[in-house]
Design a protein around this nucleic acid. Sequence first.
DNA 1: AGGCATGATTTGATCGTTCAAGTTAAGGAA
DNA 2: TTCCTTAACTTGAACGATCAAATCATGCCT
Lengths: 338, 338
Amino acid sequence: MADKVTIADVARIAGVSRQTVSNALNSPEVVRPETRQRVLEVVEELGYRVNLAARQMRTGRSGLIAIRIDPAGDGINGSVFDRFLHGLTESAAEAGYRLLLYTAGDDDKEIAAFEDLLGAHEPDAFVLTSTHHKDPRTSWLLDRKLPFVTFGRPWSELPEVPHPWVDVDGSAGTEAATEHLLATGHRRIAFLGWPSGSGVGDDRREGWRRALAGAGLDPTGLSRATSDAIADGEAAARDLISGDPDITALVCASDSLALGALQVARSPNPAWHAEAYRRIAVVGFDDTPVAKAIGLTSVHQPLTEAAARCMQLLSRALERTPPGTILLPPSLVVRQSA
Amino acid sequence: MADKVTIADVARIAGVSRQTVSNALNSPEVVRPETRQRVLEVVEELGYRVNLAARQMRTGRSGLIAIRIDPAGDGINGSVFDRFLHGLTESAAEAGYRLLLYTAGDDDKEIAAFEDLLGAHEPDAFVLTSTHHKDPRTSWLLDRKLPFVTFGRPWSELPEVPHPWVDVDGSAGTEAATEHLLATGHRRIAFLGWPSGSGVGDDRREGWRRALAGAGLDPTGLSRATSDAIADGEAAARDLISGDPDITALVCASDSLALGALQVARSPNPAWHAEAYRRIAVVGFDDTPVAKAIGLTSVHQPLTEAAARCMQLLSRALERTPPGTILLPPSLVVRQSA
DNA sequence: AGGCATGATTTGATCGTTCAAGTTAAGGAA
DNA sequence: TTCCTTAACTTGAACGATCAAATCATGCCT
């Protein structure tokens, strides 16, 4: 409380110089073991802790990792980022770093935020999420040789310069989902996703297509694209199902879409005249709390591990080692819906 | 990028001293308007940004606000904290602060984290969540006269020393929920909550009791307490409903419990012999994404506003003004379930 | 014995900012 | 004219750590 213990205090009481205390803590190998021992005892006794602001002035290292957090808590899918964030906070702490949050409306504002942060708090690294085609943020950071990792692949056709990234293999997820449906007897399996152009969305569609192709089935006419909202998912699912009476299962690019699809799948459709209730299997993506709550089968992303891997790559990047990339396999959580 | 612009650079180019630049930025009133103008132009031109580490060394202020984030993404109810966090990040940014995350297993570890942080990053203030009876964290911070706000009331009987807090009036929420049910014709309305002892839980039960009392109804035997999980909610709801055939509605202390209750409410109970499907109205608490997704009527907490109010009180606390307290009213979001 | 490499520790300078005290010039009162 | 006050700005020191260079032993080789 009242006591601000500095390195000079420790030095005086241990009977050594400031630098020796610094060395005992940061470069133990250059200090004689018994001296080091004595210093550490005094450090313990006085409760000394390095003042990061002072260290930062000399070394330029702040011990901070910056990550963007979006202003609006965005319903169902926001939880993916949040779970990742929780994991990252812990992994970062283990590596001796702390997370600094910032907000930014779009890519340009985020780059402005980079400049702000670098001038002010000077984070040692950045973690970027939701990467996309031609992401200006990664090139900006690469140009300045700033350490960063993305959670999400660089979705550009030709990755000019490589950078470290961690991602979950979305296509493997939808492929597993589709194979599960095939194994349980479904033959006409549709896909409900987003308009092509988004790396994540296209990737997830590809996994479904691959599984169908592997079973010798034709995907033509079995795919719909819409924006990521429950109501849109419901409409698209209704369209798909009423247009093709043989469809018995739906693989969706998100739990939001799947939730919309479930509205259709779980209730009889009055348009089908005399036709009785037709049960449609539905699989979602992300394994959000909503999926768990309502028994929706969904593709689970190992977010805690992804966060740990991000920190791992970041540690390497901070030592200026060439970038690594990690693609994690998701897992299918089977519940009542499929 | 390569350029580290310091206050000395600005001073040299503007033809003034370092201190005058500092004053132009921090204490404009002591500088002649035209000088100030010139300095600001150079600042703009060079893209000067104050180095917070250096400032912190002199002033002791870091521009950081620390807040704990729990390691595990905890399903449904975690989203309440996450939404609050998103809002707080934005409010903090508007006030010129940034959020620093840390983790801690329990109260004692959190206090250890306080010590770590204060020695290292030196946050200017703390935001505490999930306050409870005899919370050791608040007394620790009060003892050291450190600025902080809690999101959650001090739940102790006698608040020895006051501290700033923001909270949402839970009892008003359950009261509104119960009144809504009364208004729609329900007479026998049960409450599904947590074991007494938790401030939040007791408060929410109290609102329900108050509404019943207001309508001249007896709450005896209409309340159950259990832990906060879907399965527990289902079991307790089944117990309540099968034990009292007149119950037509359930007010729950959380969306998790409500979700469990819905499993019972929405399906016919085989135990009721010939009795037909009995529809039970259910109201949840927190208005989580799950509630929105499945049409659960729920009590909504104004989390973005709560976050903004926290920052407001924090700003005051940082100026050492006497603590303020703010109790926000929640709102009932009526959906299909009630 | 002298020279030299090596290990262990100390000393002085520095990072970029703000505080506290000092300087300068201009204006007003006696 | 002289002295004092005030406004506007400048100067030196300090925050607490680390870097780079200097010092001081110690042991080994010739």
